[in-house]
Amino acid sequence: MTDEDLRIEVTSWLAAHWTGLPAHHESFGRDPRSAWLAQVRDAGWAVPRWPAEWHGRGLSDAQARIVERTFAEAGAPGAGQDRTNLWANTALAYATEPFKRVIVPQLLAGEVGMCLLYSEPGAGSDLAAVRTRADRVPGGWRVTGQKVWTSGAAVADYGMLIARTDWDAPKHRGISFFFLPMRQPGVTVRPLRQITDETHFNEVFLDDALVPEENLLGPLHGGWRVLQTALAYERSVMGDSARGPRSGAGGPKGDHAMIALAREVGRLADPVIRQDLAQVVAWRVLNRLNTERAKAELAQGTSSPIMSLGKLAMSRILHEEARLRTRLLGPESLLEGPDHPRAEDANFLSLNAYFTSIGGGTDQIQRNIIGERVLGLPKEPETDRTISFREVRAG
């Protein structure tokens, strides 16, 4: 099929099926657009690079991008999940065959809600220090422990869980990776109030929760490699985009929203403001190019340290844009509430920028990854890397 033939086919399919549903989805849990996403999946547009056996079309990366661009031009969601859906990509690479057959189609259609059960009170930046345990029982594993900072846990159907299955191995080699069913006895979710007055984050208590045999991803005790793949996709998404204004009424949206806001408040002619605007726009363009490069290098079932560049860059962009937005509004930024949407959005975005600085690995961790794995600088000393986890000191 030529590029033009493909473009015509995608355009014709969208003309026949796309009904103008909301293209943006920020809530957690099952996607309310799942009926549409199921159509996209069944037509092979959701994951065009994947083989037909897995709801794809086996297209090259260049032709898959034609599909994605055509969907984007129509404002239609759902295409290109073979680059962005961290749940489905991780499952396709590592899940057992029986579980994969069930879960991958559901993930592509947003028919199940997902969350990440990684961080613990004593294992945040150092995820290899997790102490949640998974003990072998007939038919699967019993899981006991605590997770924290879990977005969407209250409405999730499954959590991607890392738990310790071998306490005598070194810490990176005794971890296994599971899809934990969340709606069962033994799973308790408690919301955490955020600085933005939201409760997206939660702490999760696991008391003998059951993980079925087929829900193990990758080899037993080999979950660290699975985790690196999942983190690469997560950082790819966080480096590619970020949450916008909460109210939806606080001014222009999109890449050039800051320019439009400067024009709106009458400060676009200020040479210092223009210089700051040019800087944030340049950062966004550069970050987009870097993210595209990283995604092109991210083969199925692998990880890429370059994703950390995009994730770190997006953190810096969000903080700088929040500072500039506040500066543009001046004293108006001190206001809040629905009667002052521009100020409300400026304050929300200033506070929410810290989410990207922390979630998916802190800025400091990203700098370590970039220094060691991208720049080739010497690794920091790890005195506990080769000893049994039972011997690792815990504070």
Rank of each mutant, 00 (worst) to 15 (best):
L127M: 04
A128D: 13
A129R: 11
A129V: 08
V130L: 11
V130P: 13
T132W: 12
T132D: 10
T132S: 15
T132Y: 13
R133D: 12
R133P: 05
A134S: 03
D135W: 08
R136M: 03
V137W: 10
P138V: 12
G139M: 10
G140P: 05
G140C: 06
G140R: 13
G140E: 14
W141G: 01
R142E: 14
V143H: 00
T144H: 13
T144A: 04
T144S: 09
G145W: 10
G145A: 06
K147C: 11
V148Q: 09
V148T: 10
W149R: 14
W149N: 14
W149Q: 13
W149V: 08
T150V: 15
G152P: 01
G152N: 06
A153F: 14
A153M: 09
A154Y: 08
V155K: 12
V155G: 01
V155H: 03
D157P: 07
Y158S: 00
G159Q: 15
M160E: 12
L161N: 08
A163V: 01
A163C: 01
A163W: 12
T165N: 04
D166N: 15
W167E: 14
A169C: 04
A169M: 11
P170V: 07
P170F: 14
P170N: 13
P170E: 09
P170Y: 15
K171T: 04
R173S: 11
R173G: 05
G174K: 10
G174Q: 06
I175Y: 02
S176Y: 11
S176G: 03
S176V: 01
F177K: 08
F177C: 05
F178D: 13
F178L: 12
F179M: 11
P181V: 00
P181C: 00
P181L: 00
Q184T: 09
P185N: 13
G186H: 12
G186V: 08
G186Y: 15
V187G: 00
V187W: 01
T188H: 13
V189C: 04
V189K: 06
V189H: 02
V189A: 06
R190N: 02
P191H: 11
L192A: 07
L192G: 11
Q194A: 12
Q194Y: 10
I195M: 11
T196G: 14
T196N: 12
D197I: 00
D197F: 04
E198M: 07
T199S: 13
T199L: 08
H200D: 03
H200F: 05
F201H: 09
F201V: 01
E203I: 07
E203F: 12
E203C: 06
E203V: 07
V204D: 03
V204G: 03
V204A: 05
F205K: 08
F205D: 13
L206Q: 02
D207T: 11
D207W: 15
D208I: 06
V211R: 00
E214D: 15
E214A: 08
E214T: 04
N215F: 05
L216V: 07
L216A: 06
G218V: 03
G218E: 15
P219F: 06
P219W: 10
G222I: 01
G223M: 04
G223D: 10
W224L: 02
W224D: 05
R225M: 01
V226K: 00
V226G: 00
L227G: 00
L227P: 00
L227S: 00
Q228V: 02
T229W: 09
T229R: 07
A230F: 15
A230S: 13
A230H: 15
A230L: 13
